[in-house]
Simulated assay, not measured.
Amino acid sequence: MTTRLATRFKACAEQGRAALVTFITAGDPDHDTSLALLKALPGAGADVIELGVPFTDPMADGPAIQAAGLRALKAGQTLAKTLAMVREFRAGEADTPVVLMGYYNPIYIYGVERFLKDAKEAGVDGLIVVDLPPEEDNELCLPALKAGLDFIRLATPTTDDRRLPAVLANTAGFVYYVSITGITGAATPDADVVGQAVARIKRHTGLPVAVGFGVKTPAQAAAIAAGADGVVVGSALIDALRGSLDAGERATPATVPAVTGLVSALAEAVRGVARAAAE
């Protein structure tokens, strides 16, 4: 069975361009605004959507995404509500892949078997669980693959050629290359270094390689798009959302347009690299 992720990355490759992967936190700043934003992302140019599952101890996330998670939790967001959001999104959008990104604890509490069943039925396509290493594949990775969900693994600048095969062994959908060492949104990636790293990873796998952590501007997205199969943008979108909130951190009429406007600019930049390459 061909997955939505495989179909979307194949379509982007056939167009000679990278995919734009956008990250938002489910329930930030509230459920209804977050759902409206989720529904608006494909039209703004998002090829793949990563939906963050808020958690109280997000060790890999920088201040922007940590704050987004806290806003979402304060507004009452739960894993069950996140799955319901995906279900409602799927009612009107059948093609755009949705990947849940987060930590194992909420899934463990929900119950792995129940979670995988509910996630698949809701229309989730893949999982990124940043605190489960390959040594723990029996916990979630292998059951997820059996349930028909892609399990996307992170590779980092410190993942050497000895470690890489273990990281890639059960990876599906795409490989997420973390372009910097440290937390999300903390630094700016060097496009040349990233291109070399992507080429190294692709010597070990036929999967698409998407690059994230630190990509903030359309110009940076375009630079990364020249050497990667996908460009992931998260903290910059969360910053745009935060800048639209009122003094009480509540949504305003500017909230959804603030994010979709940036997504459109990023999408144009990523597609611009393809047009230049195709000419």
Rank of each mutant, 00 (worst) to 15 (best):
A172N: 06
G69C: 13
A26T: 12
V211K: 05
L140P: 10
G102W: 14
K202H: 06
D125C: 08
G43L: 10
A226G: 12
A277P: 03
G173T: 01
P54L: 13
L145D: 03
T255A: 13
N138I: 00
P58A: 03
A19M: 10
N170M: 04
D192T: 10
V273E: 15
P253K: 07
L73K: 01
F115G: 06
D229I: 02
T2V: 14
T217Q: 08
A210T: 04
Q196P: 01
K10P: 00
L37V: 02
P208D: 02
N105T: 12
T22I: 04
G195D: 04
D57Y: 10
G52S: 11
E139H: 08
L37Q: 15
P143F: 02
N170V: 00
K120V: 09
A236M: 10
F213Q: 14
L164H: 02
V99H: 09
A80K: 15
A40M: 02
R163V: 00
R271T: 12
Q15A: 15
V86P: 01
V86G: 14
K117V: 03
T25K: 15
R90T: 03
L207W: 04
G272V: 05
A254C: 03
Y103C: 10
A221P: 06
G52M: 12
D61W: 13
D95T: 05
T252P: 07
A197F: 03
Q15R: 14
G230S: 05
A64T: 03
V193F: 03
V209N: 02
K10F: 00
C141K: 10
V130I: 15
G234E: 11
L100W: 11
P97A: 02
T217I: 15
L41P: 02
T184I: 12
P133T: 09
N105K: 15
A26Q: 12
A36Y: 05
T252H: 07
M59N: 00
A72Y: 12
F115H: 07
L149A: 04
F9H: 01
L38S: 08
A186W: 01
T205R: 03
C12Y: 06
P42L: 12
A274Y: 15
A210M: 09
I24K: 13
D239C: 02
K74G: 07
D229V: 06
E249P: 00
A122W: 06
A221V: 08
A19S: 13
P257W: 14
F174V: 05
F55Q: 03
T3R: 08
Y177A: 00
R8V: 07
P253T: 01
G182S: 11
P42E: 09
P253G: 04
N138D: 14
R203N: 08
A223P: 00
L168C: 02
G45I: 04
P165E: 11
Q15L: 14
A226V: 04
A94P: 06
P54C: 14
F89P: 00
R4V: 01
D125V: 07
T25W: 15
V178N: 12
T156R: 10
V198L: 07
T171L: 12
P208G: 05
A67D: 11
R114N: 13
A223G: 01
L207H: 04
A277E: 14
I109Y: 06
P63V: 09
V270F: 09
A11S: 09
G45E: 06
P106N: 14
G111Y: 15
G185W: 14
A172C: 06
V129K: 11
